[in-house]
Design a protein around this nucleic acid. Structure first.
Length: 156
DNA sequence: GCCAACGTTGGC
DNA sequence: GCCAACGTTGGC
């Protein structure tokens, strides 16, 4: 089983929106980056766990945990001309973009802020992908050691 | 709102 | 295949 970190902007779709969704599930659609696409299409497996991370907001933080409930399949929003994720170049016969479905496992009582994570950037969280300079990837792998440590920071 | 970092595009 | 221009991300 692997661990991941998924970024989402709380103004668009935060952890409370996920909690309010039917079955506390959602399609992780709209990813338009090939590296992230490859991870969803090829590597994310049912049962994998991922941190739900709030980005581009007042207090960037890991806010909870989700689990993969459906493995990679074509992202339908790429074919929907009304969607902001529409991609005219994506051929339905050979879909370019993929998504997974995730379900909320737990919302942290105390989010682990980016500031807190950075405090450990040279220690327990050394080489964490999220903390790398200039990192913009919306989906990143998380090591088992980092996973455990961040959970401990959250009081889990 | 600014700006550094990065991925993608497209001319050559 | 190179690389400049451009658009986007995301922290601050």
């Amino acid at each position: 089983m692997k661990y991941w970190l998924l970024k989402s902007e709380p103004d668009t779709f935060g952890i409370d929106a996920l909690a309010a969704s039917p079955g506390r599930k959602t399609h992780w659609d709209g990813v338009r980056n090939y590296q992230a696409r490859n991870m969803m299409r090829d590597e994310m497996k049912r049962g994998d766990l991922a941190f739900f991370y709030h980005s581009s907001c007042a207090e960037p933080a890991v806010t909870g945990i989700v689990t993969v409930v459906r493995e990679g399949y074509p992202d339908q929003s790429a074919f929907d001309s009304r969607s902001k994720y529409f991609d005219a170049d994506s051929d339905p016969a050979a879909p370019r973009w993929f998504m997974v479905d995730v379900r909320l496992v737990r919302k942290f009582a105390h989010p682990v802020t980016l500031t807190t994570l950075r405090r450990h950037a040279e220690g327990k969280l050394k080489d964490m992908w999220l903390l790398r300079r200039g990192n913009r990837l919306s989906i990143t792998p998380v090591t088992a050691a980092h996973w455990k440590f961040i959970n401990s920071l959250a009081g889990n």
